[in-house]
Nucleic acid binder design. Structure first.
Lengths: 204, 204, 204, 204
DNA sequence: AATGAATGAGCCTTCATTCAT
DNA sequence: TATGAATGAAGGCTCATTCAT
């Protein structure tokens, strides 16, 4: 037991410091990608911002692109977490939408610029070819799915192609959020108007 | 006199070459900005695509940025032209929206990728400087204005902040259009669904 | 005779307008070489300054270098003309030196910057190799020759190597003139001091 | 403690490579600026001459201009060092001048072309900007100062404007030195003649 | 003789990435 | 594991010169 304890102590603290420097890099990368965008951020800048040597960056990511994609992925997961936390069964359409918008705008406010950076630059990145489906499109699909569920429950208007309208919902949210951020609009007002807008569009 | 006239006719035909090469450059620039995006397109590529030496590029634009901005501006003007052509007084809300959507989607189809390229990259260009209000935001304002007019006429729901909902409308259109282009969706279906969506949201 | 007269009239006026545009080019070239220096002056700038098309430049000079060399040569000839005009036989050492300095500084003042431009840049020009003997060195030789004549006449100190001291004289003149121009020194004072300096150094 | 000491010794030996490559670059830059002048020397050439990749150049200097200015500054410091080493109190005018000339010509001989390159090109560099007072003018000022001191001690002729004559002295030295270098004159002869020239001009 | 659109070699500089330590 | 000096492909842009008109 005592041996184990010693071991676990070793493991817990210094044994692998890698994760520690990785999280420094992640924090720094997020900061710079948000502030300057993908192209104006050099791996070197990220490493320095993290207080580490330039080479260390490549211990964690094979290249700059991978680092950015990881940043995008983290943002997506975080936002999903916010959304999941708000989601409850048995809400009305309006409650559901207001809840989702609240989650999104709350995230936007506590992580300013992150969603925009993640979405804006992603389209630009594919060296040549692969062009992963943009985050926006994926989230549009999610809204399509949500819409189908609402329809199935008889809580939303059934006359739509859910995929198309899913994209429309997402587009409305994205544009109001990012323009609202740029223009410094009042969050409450944006959420209120957008909720009303979507509810009217989707209600039975 | 007659000699002069003849001469000017002669001159007119082979024409000072400059305007010709400018339009070649414009065509080439549009093609490449659409296909590859701003960062992956070099002035040299544009010139070569136009069948010209790369020095020629700089006869027409002081730098790459100016060329891109001109491309954006052309796209904006073209689309506005499409929209103006469709606009008529005295339409119902639905007719008006359907008309606008038709114009936009028609433009998107006959100039595939152009709006996306113009919108996506514009945010990226400023680096440090003027940071003109993005095209998207400006079009969002236009929709806000349109909405105000509809409300004033008693043709649309008056319970919105027109600026916010203007952005929402624009966002819905933009995202359905660009995702629709990427996924190859049927244009008719997109227009139909989107029209219904917006009409429901905006109707009295 | 009459034929001849007609001919000479033709020759005299329009027959070759080339010289006219040549002198425009020369004036323009001098202006720009003086204001901006050799490297910062483009043939195109010269032509435009002359009110002519870019191509015209190459009707008169095979390349930019030749134009600059012609400019240097003109300056040399002009200055020599000033000097020749002042030179008289039978002057004292002091009169001779004062006269020469007057000529030089008068030229500098009525053609500001010309000597400097001609001298400064010339060293820089030789594409690869030839490196014509710089203007400065040639003028130093001239002063050596002058000194030999003064010595032969018994009007100057004979204990010098005339070539070396010729260079020294020229150096003293050049540096006081160009620094004096830059610092806006009073011409009279410079000439007076320099005359005294050289007279003391060269007197018997 | 002992470990630390050992470590620092180890560190000292293989040495952070950077200072080493800087001195390689400096050596190469000096060689090429002297041989070819500023404009005909590309950063890339300097790096290659130093046996390094061209990116390395920019690890040490922000741009070509800065590298050249550092070269000029180094030359100035080196020459000043030579001069300081020769300067002693209580010398006669002749000893003082002969000593200074010796120092300068010694430097010129062991660093052929350096002074010329540093002086010739410096005027050309500013393009548009700070236009630091040329090295030549600054050294002319120094000679003015020296002259004032000599006059104050009663060792030199007091009838001059020291600033003007300081420039004259410097000009004489510069021109004899650089022409002497180009023409391969005997150093002894140049120093002897120039000393005599200046002593006669400056003596009481 | 005059023009100016067109050209492309060549310049300075940046930056993602490697690798010896 | 961490470092940062070193690298060179690549990018944006300029400019002396040519040539069809």
């Amino acid at each position: 037991m005592s041996t184990t304890t010693v071991k676990s102590l070793d493991d817990a603290r210094p044994a692998r410091r890698k994760p520690e420097s990785l999280s420094k890099i992640k924090r720094a990368a997020r900061k710079l990608f948000v502030e300057r965008g993908y192209h104006a951020t050099r791996p070197q800048d990220i490493a320095r911002e993290a207080g580490l040597g330039h080479g260390t960056f490549y211990l964690h990511y094979p290249d700059k692109r991978a680092c950015f994609l990881a940043f995008v992925d983290d943002a997506r997961e975080e936002l999903d977490e916010y959304l999941r936390a708000r989601r409850q069964p048995g809400l009305t359409l309006e409650e559901m939408i207001a809840g989702a918008l609240y989650a999104i705008f709350e995230y936007s406010e506590s992580h300013p610029g992150v969603l925009n950076a993640a979405m804006t630059d992603e389209a630009i990145i594919d060296a040549e070819g692969v062009a992963a489906k943009p985050l926006l499109d994926r989230w549009g699909l999610d809204w399509g799915q949500t819409l189908r569920e609402l329809v199935a429950d008889g809580r939303a208007f059934s006359g739509y192609d859910s995929e198309i309208v899913g994209q429309a919902i997402l587009g409305a949210i994205h544009q109001t959020a990012s323009e609202g951020g740029r223009s410094g609009r009042n969050r409450e007002a944006v959420v209120k108007n957008l909720t009303r807008f979507l509810v009217r569009a989707l209600a039975l």
